[in-house]
Amino acid sequence: MPTPLCLLVALLIAGAATADEPVKLYMPDAPPLTLHHYEGGHGMAGDVVLAALARIGKLTDIVAEPWPRAQISVSRGRNMLIIPLSRTPEREELYTWIASIMELERAFFSLDEPVENFAQARERYRRIGVGLGTAQVGILQREGFSDEQIVQLKLGENPTHLLSLGRIDAWFTGVPEALYIWESSAYREQNLRRSPTLASTGLYLGCSKDCDGDLVAQLRAAISELEQEGVSQRLRQAYLPLQPDP
């Protein structure tokens, strides 16, 4: 199987000839969904979107901002793209939703016996780590978790380290992210346990509320073509780690 980088480079070269002014693409460094380091590719969602942009002849200016600020910048701007954005009720009216890139399953990760549902988690966990500004915050709030239970982690705060030290009781996050980070952490010899999937949302390519209709239509068609041709699946599959037992 070709590496994600080789496949993506071929697609980028194919589309670069007709490129004009670069399109701004806001994305966090959130492996394996999005990655800023080009040497190994740009992640499960990043590679798919960059391939779609190449297919319609658009060069891309990747913008790295803190995730909460990036969301505000894009929603208030014009023709700015953003990934990977969960389509939640709180965000519905703030963006132009171009296309779903993948479905993201979410679960609780801990070092002890996993919970089976949200009710058990509300009772057992005093401190739950979630990414600052992510959809996980809203999911837990809608499920009745208190603000004291929800510990929003900034970029650079290592949830695997906090788990191992007991500073958080559990980590609520996307399954690919947890497995990818744990596999490369210093604590991978410990027995990371996961709950069943308790929430799932589509991860979208979003655009500013004020977004050019032609750009939306072209990208929507390109993403659909990549999915139908199996290219998107190959790009995403390259980043998936081995799944541990529950």
Rank of each mutant, 00 (worst) to 15 (best):
P2L: 15
P4W: 02
P4Y: 04
P4V: 07
L7V: 11
L8G: 03
L12Q: 15
A17M: 11
D20W: 04
K24C: 01
L25A: 12
Y26W: 06
M27Y: 12
M27I: 04
P28W: 05
D29M: 03
A30N: 12
A30M: 11
L33K: 04
L35G: 00
Y38H: 10
E39G: 00
G40E: 02
G40Y: 06
H42M: 13
H42I: 02
A45H: 07
V48G: 01
L53T: 01
A54V: 05
R55C: 00
I56F: 13
T60C: 15
I62P: 06
A64I: 13
A64Y: 14
E65C: 02
P66D: 07
W67N: 00
A70P: 04
S73L: 14
S73A: 10
R76L: 04
L81H: 02
I82N: 08
I82C: 13
I83Y: 05
I83Q: 09
S86H: 07
S86Y: 09
R91W: 07
E92I: 14
E92Q: 13
E93P: 06
L94G: 01
L94F: 06
Y95P: 00
T96R: 07
W97F: 05
W97Q: 07
S100F: 00
M102D: 10
L104Q: 10
A107M: 05
A107C: 08
A107Q: 11
S110F: 08
S110Y: 03
L111Y: 10
D112V: 05
E113L: 14
E113H: 12
P114W: 09
P114K: 10
E116D: 13
N117W: 08
A119M: 15
A121K: 06
R124Y: 08
Y125H: 14
R127I: 08
I128N: 06
G129E: 05
G129A: 12
G131C: 01
G133W: 02
G133F: 01
A135Q: 08
V137S: 04
I139C: 09
L140V: 13
Q141G: 12
F145I: 15
S146R: 08
D147A: 13
Q149H: 11
I150M: 10
Q152C: 06
E157T: 11
N158H: 11
N158Q: 10
H161F: 06
H161N: 03
L165G: 00
R167D: 04
A170S: 14
F172R: 11
T173V: 15
A178R: 01
A178P: 00
W182F: 09
S185E: 02
N191T: 13
L192M: 06
S195W: 13
T201K: 05
T201F: 15
G202Y: 03
L203R: 07
L203I: 07
L205A: 12
G206C: 05
S208Y: 09
K209L: 13
G213M: 12
D214G: 07
L215R: 10
A217E: 14
I223W: 10
E225T: 11
L226H: 08
Q228G: 08
E229L: 08
Q233C: 06
R234E: 07
L235P: 01
Y239E: 03
P241D: 02
P244S: 06
P246H: 14
